[in-house]
Simulated assay, not measured.
Amino acid sequence: MPRILIIGNSGAARECYWVLRDVMESAPGLAHYYSFGGFLDWKGYAGDLKDLRDFYLGTADDYAPGPDDLFILGVGKPQLRREIFTAFKARGASFMNLIHPWSSIAPSAVIGEGNIVQRGCTVYCNASIGNGNYLNGAVNLSHDASIGDFNFLAPYSIVLGGAGIGSCNHLGPHSVLLEHARMGNGNLLAPGSVIYKGCRDNCRMAGNPALKIAAHAASDVDSDQMPDK
């Protein structure tokens, strides 16, 4: 029986647990096929599992994945998602895509590994999603939109048709990329901001139209991962 484990032990991890519960309840046969193993912290982070603390297993730092283990990236910060994913893939781990049953993904969309798709998201035709992204509720990816790896898209963020996002970006609530806009890597987009044409790497963007207000130094992603301009 495959065993599901969540790497993370705070708010995002608890959200993932309840999405997993909704998934299991939407298709009762899954509960007889999968078992929930518990939560692992990353690098000793104290965390806050609240009423789920009895499911805490210990640290993930030296955890050796078993052949039946499936992992969920239960952290929100893009750089941590990338760090955990890379470390565990090197150990031979497999990550599941956790998709809420009230979300919709078109059959022609392409989705990688280790993504979280919270309730109410819509991924339209021929959109592309890489690995380890977190779509945190009511996110809209329009036709032919693409996002790279380890991005966090806050609730009600929108990526319109043909727009492209690189890796390790954080999009605030109600932020928008207009049609065919291009965003690089490691950027922070303030809530309610609108990207008309695009931005490069490691920028803090705010406003409508969004302008660079500062450098964003929280990322060290490679600039050669930036989508084509």
Rank of each mutant, 00 (worst) to 15 (best):
L20P: 01
N115C: 12
L40D: 06
D22Q: 08
G132T: 12
W102F: 09
L49P: 00
A138Y: 15
W42H: 10
L178N: 14
S175K: 11
C168P: 00
L135R: 03
L57G: 02
F88D: 08
Y63I: 03
D54P: 05
Q118T: 10
F39N: 14
D22V: 01
T59G: 15
A127T: 07
L98N: 02
H180I: 02
N208L: 00
I129W: 01
E179W: 04
C168M: 06
G192N: 06
R3V: 14
L135Y: 01
I72T: 09
D144I: 00
F85H: 12
L80E: 15
L189Y: 04
R119D: 10
Y124F: 04
G44K: 14
P28M: 11
R53Q: 14
D22W: 00
Y34L: 12
T86Y: 02
W18E: 14
V117K: 06
G37M: 02
V139C: 11
V123M: 13
V123F: 08
V117H: 03
V19E: 09
S157I: 07
G29F: 00
H180R: 14
K89E: 13
C125F: 12
A127P: 11
Y156R: 13
G186K: 02
G38M: 09
L49M: 04
G37K: 03
I129Y: 00
F36W: 09
G58D: 10
I105D: 11
W18D: 12
I84R: 05
P209A: 06
A93Y: 00
P78L: 01
D228I: 08
S146G: 08
K50R: 15
P107D: 14
Q118E: 13
T122N: 13
I7E: 07
P2C: 04
D224R: 08
W102Q: 13
M1L: 07
G47H: 03
L49A: 05
D41G: 13
Y124I: 03
I195E: 08
A87C: 07
C203S: 13
P2F: 02
G148I: 11
D220Y: 03
H143Q: 12
P173Y: 04
N131Q: 07
A181H: 06
Y196G: 00
F39L: 14
R91N: 10
R82M: 10
S108H: 05
Y134L: 15
Y45Q: 10
M24I: 12
F152I: 08
A109G: 07
Y34P: 00
G132C: 06
G162A: 11
D228E: 15
A93T: 11
V221W: 07
P155G: 01
P107G: 08
G76F: 00
A206I: 07
G161M: 00
S146I: 07
Y56H: 15
D201W: 02
Y17P: 06
A145S: 14
D54Q: 14
D61K: 13
N208K: 02
W18C: 01
I158H: 14
G132P: 03
I4W: 02
A206N: 05
G198L: 04
G29S: 10
R200S: 13
A215F: 01
I165W: 03
A90V: 03
V139K: 09
G207V: 08
A138G: 07
S108W: 03
A106C: 12
C125A: 15
R91S: 11
L178G: 01
M96T: 15
G114W: 00
L70C: 05
